[in-house]
């Protein structure tokens, strides 16, 4: 599979997280996956301004700002699986990762359809990658934070035409992620 890791860690010197992701990449490669990491803190991705040019033109399907969200969208939609990885900061994934999620909106269509009896956006592409979540806890993180964050990613997956395959913590071995992905 083609796997993209979105590294949503804003702090360069968070060494445990860095080591975990390195180990994960090695593990996934040994399982014959093709892995690419996008280090979001090094990318120039502007905050979404809610202008909706990506939905109603002049540029349907892409952000009107020529930032690196174009690279992000290209890598995302052409992957079989995308891993969202982030430290838990004040009970949720980083602002860096959230900003990035907002910029995936061009991948959907503005038209609305009913999914599970609820309004959701229509597909723009024929297929969307599966997604998984990896969280790196801080000293103030508790179980409720993990549940709340995971539930929000289940909702995000529903809107992004996919399912959340797993939500795992970095204090668990990387083999857990490998197993979860290889079960797909």
């Amino acid at each position: 599979m083609k796997i993209t890791i979105l590294d949503g860690n804003p702090e360069k010197d968070r060494t445990g997280f860095y080591r975990y992701l390195n180990e994960l990449v090695t593990g996934l490669q040994s399982d014959k996956h093709q892995v690419k990491t996008l280090t979001l803190r090094d990318m120039e991705i502007k905050f979404c301004t809610g202008c909706w040019s990506c939905w109603w033109g002049p540029t349907p399907g892409e952000c009107v700002f020529k930032d690196e969200s174009h690279t992000l969208c290209r890598e995302y939609i052409n992957s079989d699986f995308v891993i969202f990885a982030s430290p838990v900061i004040l009970g949720f994934t980083s602002a860096l990762l959230k900003k990035t999620q907002d910029k995936l909106i061009p991948l959907l269509h503005p038209y609305i359809e009913l999914v599970q009896g609820e309004c959701h956006h229509k597909k723009r592409y024929d297929r969307y990658p599966g997604i998984g979540l990896i969280l790196d806890t801080n000293s103030d993180t508790d179980e409720e934070d993990i549940t709340v964050t995971t539930d929000m990613f289940h909702r995000f997956a529903l809107n992004l035409k996919t399912e959340l395959a797993f939500s795992l913590l970095t204090d668990q071995p990387v083999a857990e992620v490998q197993d979860a992905i290889n079960r797909i």
Binding site: F47, F92, S94, K98, K99, T100, Q101, D102, N159
Partner: peptide, 12 residues
Amino acid sequence: LYTDAMPGIVKH
């Protein structure tokens, strides 16, 4: 609501 959560600027 932005992608099922707060907008990026709010988390910032």
